[in-house]
Design a protein around this nucleic acid. Sequence first.
DNA 1: GCCAACGTTGGC
DNA 2: GCCAACGTTGGC
Length: 144
Amino acid sequence: MDEPSVEPTLKYWIVKSEPFKYSWDDFVNEKRSVWEGVRNYQARNNLMAMHLNDLVLFYHSNEGKEIVGLARVVREHYPDPTTDDSRWVVVDLEPVERFPKTVPLARIKADSRLQELSLVRQSRLSVLPLHRAEFDILVGIAYE
DNA sequence: GCCAACGTTGGC
DNA sequence: GCCAACGTTGGC
């Protein structure tokens, strides 16, 4: 063990949303979101691996193309209420804070430390894991 | 609007 | 089980 941790199971994630469908502001207004509609097995598996209080970066795809804020998992996976198909699950998310500065994709791609980031390497996946070190770098940029 | 990168479907 | 055809996502 190289690093003692208060939350040994805490993991880090990125979720993507097209802002004209569901934006960060929509999320804040709702105060809590059922993260519904994921229909991709890999993204579903990531949802199922989320634990309570895991931290989640909120990314605007298509328009904006930037990380805008931080959320956390407030309910672990359960069946997606928008379908009868038992393969699909949701989690519940709550906003934690809007970042003082967004982190644009172009900024991420220009950073040599972030070349392995899942968001860069698997750009089509809507729910992505990331490493603690990458999370720290991204939050650092958001607070520069 | 184009296209790369995937994922899914279905014929064989 | 392979692979061609097709659909979707999302960056550019």
